[in-house]
């Protein structure tokens, strides 16, 4: 459900005054988007908790929203922080936020993830006539941030700005990660004949 600027401003004003109903109307429209962001950042088991924490924080800090970005972008930033907080609390592997746009040492493809030796390769999955498995195996071979960026863009339909807010990088970095991800994924799938 899309709101006009005036409708959004009215709902924002009421929500800032403590109207939970107005807050719910305003933020329900973007809940599927936040759910997708949380799902990509923390996985299926924790994404509901992350969305709830995100909305609680947004409710408490709504007066700090100054309109310099869209409400969705602002909320994506909160969702990212909540996701990282949860990952740290639960002792999950440290979240890396380094830039992947810097040149690497020669011969190494920055977009490549070190594969799990137990996991099926794309070729093995393709041989088993399992296209979905082949795609999954190829996705697993992408670097985590490339895979997340690719899925947020191509599957979840987020804008570059929303992805930048959700992953804590600049828009240019989002674009370069997306470029690497598409190129790497395409090459992997071309090797097994899944794409031409």
């Amino acid at each position: 459900m899309k709101f006009s600027t005036r409708e959004q401003q009215e709902l924002l004003a009421r929500a800032r005054q403590g109207d939970v109903d107005a807050f719910a109307v305003l933020f329900e429209a973007m809940r599927p988007l936040m759910h997708r962001v949380a799902y990509r950042l923390v996985g299926p088991n924790d994404c509901d908790d992350v969305v709830m924490e995100t909305y609680i924080k947004a409710w408490r800090a709504l007066s700090e929203f100054g309109g310099r970005s869209t409400l969705a972008t602002w909320t994506c930033r909160i969702a990212r922080n909540c996701a990282y907080d949860l990952l740290r609390r639960r002792g999950r592997r440290e979240v890396r936020e380094q830039s992947l746009d810097e040149p690497l040492e020669e011969g190494r493809d920055r977009s490549e993830e070190v594969p799990d030796p137990r996991a099926r390769t794309p070729a093995e999955a393709a041989a088993a006539d399992d296209l979905r498995g082949a795609i999954q195996a190829a996705l697993d071979r992408l670097h985590e941030v490339h895979r997340t960026t690719f899925l947020l863009r191509e599957v979840d339909g987020l804008s570059y700005r929303e992805i930048a807010a959700a992953t804590g990088v600049r828009i240019g970095t989002v674009m370069s990660r997306l470029f690497y991800a598409r190129r790497r994924l395409r090459r992997l799938l071309e090797q097994i004949g899944a794409v031409r």
Partner: peptide, 29 residues
């Protein structure tokens, strides 16, 4: 094949949300 699952139903989510915010003060400068 790789779309995210649907979020929980609207009434269930907002019911939990209302319970939580009832006890939380707003950060309103």
């Amino acid at each position: 094949d790789f779309s995210a699952p649907e979020p929980p139903p609207e009434d269930r989510f907002w019911g939990r949300f209302r319970e939580r915010v009832r006890a939380i003060p707003r950060i309103t400068p």
